[in-house]
Computed example of a mutant assay.
Amino acid sequence: MSISLVKGQKVDLTKGNAGLSSILVGLGWDPAEAESKGMFGFKKKAANIDCDASALMLNADNKLPDPKHVICFYNLKSPCGSVRHTGDNLTGAGDGDDEQISIDLANIPSNIEKVLMVVNIYQCESRGQDFGMIRSAYIRVLNPANKQELIRFNLTDSYAGMTALVVGEVYRHNGEWKFNAIGEGAHAKHIDILSQKYL
C-alpha cells in the first residue's frame, strides 16, 4: 500500500521493505490550461512545456563530488551506473510518469549520502514559462520488481515565478535508505545552473 506524503515528511524506504535494493522514481506533471479568446469565444489550451527531471548525487557535505554526478537528459547514467535516467519527455502530455530515474541503492558508492531529485523547465526564459503554468506535479517511488508504488508526494504549493523545483531526496540514515519530501521552488533556468550551488 502506497504512503501519501506531505511536504517535509520523511519515511523509511528499505527498513520494513525486506530485500528492497533498488527503486524507480517517477516524476509527473501536466501543463495547466489557460483561457485564450478566439473568434468563437474563450477556449482552454494547455501550454507546451518541456520539464526535465534530474538527479544529483551528493556527498556528506551536500556537494557533488564531480559534475558527472548530475544525471539528466544529456547525461543519462552516473559514472558508477547506479543511477540512470530513462530518457527525456518533451511535453508532459498523457497519464502516468513523465520521466523516471532508476536508483540501484545497493551499488551507490559509499561517498554518496543522498540522491536529490529536481525538475527544470527547458528554455524557460525564452518561452516565458514558470512552474505556475504546471499542475498535478508529483514524485513517487516504486519497487521495480513488482511495480508496487511505495510512496507518493503530490506538490500542491503555488510555484508561480519559479523555474526549478527541488522535489525530494533519497538519503542514507543509520545504514538504511529514507525519502524526504522537499517540494521547494527555486530560480534556475537550466540544470547546470541549479547544480552549480552543489559544487
Rank of each mutant, 00 (worst) to 15 (best):
N89E: 05
I151Y: 14
N146C: 10
Q9W: 03
N180K: 12
G168D: 04
L90M: 09
N120G: 06
S158A: 11
L155A: 13
K37H: 08
C124P: 01
L90Y: 03
E99Y: 07
F40P: 00
A137D: 03
S78G: 01
D88F: 09
S36G: 03
V170G: 10
N143F: 13
R172N: 07
D104K: 05
D95F: 05
E35Y: 11
C124E: 03
D157L: 11
I112L: 04
L142I: 00
T14F: 01
D12Y: 11
Q129Y: 06
N146L: 05
Q100E: 13
K114F: 00
L20M: 11
T14N: 06
S36M: 13
S54L: 05
G41M: 04
K77P: 02
A164E: 05
D97S: 12
D50E: 07
S4E: 15
S78C: 01
N59I: 12
G94Y: 05
G96H: 10
I121D: 01
H85D: 06
S54R: 09
K147T: 14
P144V: 14
A60V: 12
D61E: 07
V11Y: 05
D52C: 12
L116Y: 02
N174Q: 13
Q129T: 06
P31R: 03
N143P: 10
S78V: 00
A18Y: 08
N89L: 09
A55S: 07
E149V: 15
A18D: 06
V83K: 00
K45D: 12
V119F: 02
L76P: 01
K114R: 12
D88C: 02
A93C: 03
L58A: 00
C51H: 03
V11R: 12
Y198V: 10
P31W: 05
V167C: 14
G16Q: 03
M162R: 03
V170W: 10
E149Y: 09
R152W: 04
V6H: 08
I3E: 09
S195Q: 07
M1R: 14
S54P: 03
K77N: 08
Y138L: 08
G16S: 11
V25T: 13
T14P: 02
Q129P: 04
E169G: 07
D130Q: 07
N143R: 10
T163L: 03
K77Y: 04
G92S: 11
S54D: 04
L194A: 07
N17A: 13
F73L: 11
L90H: 04
N17P: 04
A137L: 08
A46N: 07
A93K: 11
Y171P: 02
L58I: 00
G16T: 13
A47D: 09
C51T: 09
S158L: 08
D52Q: 06
L56F: 10
L116N: 00
F131K: 00
K37N: 05
L116E: 01
W29H: 12
K68D: 14
A34P: 01
Q148W: 00
E149L: 08
F131W: 00
L199Q: 15
G16N: 14
G128P: 11
C72A: 14
M57H: 07
D52H: 13
E33P: 08
K37F: 13
P144T: 15
G185F: 02
G132E: 00
